[in-house]
């Protein structure tokens, strides 16, 4: 589904990603871990097309297409979803209107008819139930006045609505209390199918208690320095990142 080859990216002339190689297949869950500043969020930003970053080397293939060549909205319409670490507030734009616009853009892209108002509302009710989200969130403006937990839950709700092929969760667990974390994790688990995939970007192992990854990668100084099964996460939790740093420096 996703093939990243030797990806280099920089911001303001400073290289943050220094040769990432990663392949994600349908039905898989990958966790990317690493100390602060290792480039985790940069990877998410580059994959979704944030123009603040400049890709200076490498290639990314998404379902057989050159991902780096596509506009951010086309990447989204092709089924790439990012759960933002810091979701942006858009005052005055209601969640309902926002989602309806996004969903119908996706439909248009696929050559399908837009959803009728009643079908849309039905879908929204349905998805809210699926990810266990308060109904009043959707009556408010996009992320405006939301608490940190509400913002993260809202990201998962949007993911449920848009039904992406590949979802990237950028530190969705950070700052969440245990109840909110459970809701987020349940949502992700319920949305998991054999034809979609998920990349979890996280600093801590805690989220992985609820979502079981197939692979765990450690990102350090812009490179994946270690890949293994889920047991790696536990090892990191116990030993911290220092041994990785040491091993890598040597």
């Amino acid at each position: 589904m996703l093939k990243i080859k030797d990806l280099h990216a920089k911001i303001d002339g400073k290289e943050i990603l220094r040769g990432i190689n990663l392949e994600v297949k349908a039905g898989e869950i990958h966790a990317i871990m690493g100390p602060n500043g290792s480039g985790k969020s940069t990877l998410a930003a580059v994959l979704t097309g944030n123009e603040a970053f400049e890709v200076n080397e490498g290639a990314v293939e998404f379902n057989g297409q050159d991902l780096l060549d596509m506009a951010p909205e086309d990447r989204a319409r092709e089924g790439l979803f990012l759960s933002f670490q810091y979701p942006v507030e858009i005052p005055g734009v209601s969640m309902t209107n926002f989602m309806r616009t996004a969903l119908n853009e996706q439909k248009k892209h696929k050559g399908e008819d837009p959803l009728s108002a009643s079908d849309f509302l039905k879908l929204m009710r349905d998805r809210k139930k699926l990810v266990d989200i308060d109904s009043d969130l959707t009556n408010r403006s996009v992320n405006e006045g939301f608490s940190g937990g509400e913002k993260k839950k809202n990201e998962i709700f949007q993911m449920a609505m848009l039904d992406p092929k590949l979802a990237i969760l950028d530190e969705t667990d950070s700052g969440l209390d245990i109840d909110a974390l459970r809701i987020v994790a349940n949502g992700v688990n319920k949305l998991k199918r054999s034809d979609n995939a998920t990349i979890l970007i996280t600093h801590y192992q805690r989220l992985l208690d609820y979502i079981e990854p197939d692979y765990v990668h450690v990102l350090y100084k812009g490179r994946i320095v270690k890949s293994a099964g889920k047991e790696l996460a536990r090892e990191l939790e116990e030993k911290g990142y220092d041994w990785i740093k040491k091993e890598f420096e040597e």
Binding site: G49, E51, A71, E73, F84, P87, I90, T101, E105, Q158
Partner: peptide
């Protein structure tokens, strides 16, 4: 960018905002 990431192009995003 947030709107773009949800599949809404820039012109529509401006309209919404």
């Amino acid at each position: 960018f947030y709107c773009n990431q949800r599949g809404i192009d820039t012109e529509n995003a401006v309209g919404l905002i």
